[in-house]
Simulated scan of single mutants.
Amino acid sequence: MRILILGGTGEASALVRGLGSRAGLSVTLSLAGRTAAPAREPVPTRIGGFGGAEGLARYLRAHAIDRLVDATHPFAARISRNAAAAAAETGVPLLAIRRPPWIRQAGDAWIEVDTIAQSVDALGVDPKTVFLTVGRMEVAAFANAPQHDYVVRTIEPLGEAMPVPRLTAIRARGPFDEAAETVLMREAGIAVLVTKNAGGNATYGKIAAARVLGLPVVIVRRPWKPDVPSVADAEAALDRLSGTARG
């Protein structure tokens, strides 16, 4: 069985490790290429896009793919739409790993928005220190609110992506625990956290820390994704795919 995994998440890595050593399976991992030095995985890995849904469909046919797994980030809406369209066109069964979103808890002061632009507006006009964790590709929008001090954490170097006068850039890759996040926010004098509702445990520490510190969180809701067969985590995907292989 030939399996193509659209990855870039912890779930994809866990699934690859679970499937990589199993007899009778040929697994390929595909990454978008936004991270310069992705973690090495024990299966063949391709880097870069496919050229939309049509390009992905051509790849599925050319490589005789038997199963397609969408294990991309919850905010990678375009590739998820392309995966659904390509699967429908080719008849290749698609399974998505859809990580549950974070749920507001007692003590959370969330300001929920639908877009990054709305999160910029939600900061208001009064200057404040903002902890920004929305990913390097999204930070440019915050240059429209240069009155704030920004602490920006990204995996890749920030470079010139965010031209504001007061900027502290942090390069780090999760997981981040609650204790460390609490110390970071307290010492930096953070007044508000801006993030996406990515879900999962690896970066939940900042949400818990904001709750402990009584800080508001501007949180971007997830984009729409196609309704396809899905599971919540890599373990469930592994069970589903292993059952298919046995069948």
Rank of each mutant, 00 (worst) to 15 (best):
A62K: 11
P127T: 11
A109L: 15
A64L: 09
R136I: 14
L19D: 07
E54H: 05
L31A: 02
I111L: 14
G48M: 12
A87N: 06
R104G: 12
P93L: 10
G52M: 05
Y59T: 13
A122F: 09
L19A: 12
T115E: 03
G135W: 01
D121A: 15
L132Q: 01
A86Q: 05
L56Q: 11
G124M: 04
K128E: 12
R98K: 12
A37F: 04
A96D: 08
E138H: 15
D70R: 11
I111P: 04
P93H: 02
A76G: 11
I111Q: 15
G135N: 00
R136E: 11
L94A: 14
L56E: 12
A64H: 10
D70L: 02
G48C: 07
A122S: 08
A23K: 13
D126F: 02
R46C: 13
L94F: 14
D126P: 00
R67K: 09
V139R: 03
F75N: 13
G107C: 12
G124I: 15
P38Y: 01
L95T: 03
L95N: 02
P74T: 00
T72Y: 06
V134K: 07
G135L: 00
G33N: 12
D114C: 05
P42R: 06
R61G: 00
L60P: 08
W110G: 09
R104D: 15
A106N: 07
I47R: 14
H73W: 05
G51T: 01
D121E: 15
A37G: 00
R136P: 00
L123I: 12
D121I: 10
G20C: 08
A140T: 06
S21C: 02
L25D: 02
I97F: 05
A36D: 07
L95S: 08
P127E: 14
H73L: 14
H73S: 08
P38K: 02
A37D: 11
H73Q: 13
A36L: 08
A36N: 09
V92E: 06
V134H: 05
A64P: 01
E138Y: 01
G49I: 03
A77M: 09
Q118C: 08
A84E: 02
P38C: 01
R99F: 06
I103H: 15
A23L: 12
R98Q: 14
P100S: 01
W110C: 10
I47M: 10
Q118L: 06
R61Q: 10
M137N: 14
A64F: 13
Q118M: 11
D126C: 11
P100A: 00
D70Y: 03
W110E: 07
A106E: 15
R99A: 05
A62S: 15
R34N: 07
I111H: 07
R58W: 02
R46D: 14
F131V: 01
P42F: 06
T35C: 04
T133H: 03
L95C: 11
T133L: 11
H73N: 05
G20T: 02
